[in-house]
Amino acid sequence: MKILKIDGLCKNYPSFRLQDVSFSIDSGTIMGFIGRNGAGKTTTLKAIMNMVHAEKGKIEFFGLDMKEHEHEIKQRVGYAGGIIDYYKKKKISKLLEITARFYDNWDADVCQRYMKLFSLDENKTPSQLSEGMKVKLSLVMALSHRAELLILDEPTSGLDPISRDELLEIFLYLKSKGVSILFSTHITSDLDKCADDISYIRGGRIIYTGSIAGFTGSETLEEVMLRQEKEAFREKLDI
């Protein structure tokens, strides 16, 4: 079953555009969303979550149209856009208390478990956390309402290697529980460890979407990506 289906997503900015972005995620799988800086990863994820107004395209979660079922869909999806970048001077406990009220399936025990796992102190404010810990707090918020699909924008950037590895372990654990994950990254080694599929975006266009094996062949993901980006760069130089 397709848990997320994006079809023909377009967004125009004066100096950049998303062009006909289409891909889908199966239930219980992990998809890595890769591309170099400025390729359109964050814009795509924000458009999927209706934070960026897409000019064209259809977004369906669980077979439901995002425009018509935004509230219901957000109940079942966890989104973390990197670090916590709001209410940095409020206590984490207050943020969690207020956020919890919005979710039908918010699980205070799960929340406390992740808080402990990530060594987060709820009496602190986000401004007192390091960048890596802010990412973890953002993940706690996304994981505590038993989401069926997690959409995470660069969740591993800013984390130390041990925390990154632990996070990938959590991804695999969640996958075993039937949770699907879409996460953007430019750290390709993260994907080697846990992703089933990838979608590769360059200059606002999807270059490839499908299994990792189908993309890499005998090379590593990093090698293929570097080679392709170099070729694209050389083409630009020729112009």
């Binding site: 209706n50 935004e70 509230h71 957000k74 709001y86 919005f102």
Partner: peptide
């Protein structure tokens, strides 16, 4: 300053709400 709009939009509510 608190980025309240971003926080609100991330919650399970529609932008209209």
């Amino acid at each position: 300053e608190d980025n309240d709009i971003l926080y609100s939009v991330l919650l399970p509510v529609s932008k209209r709400d």
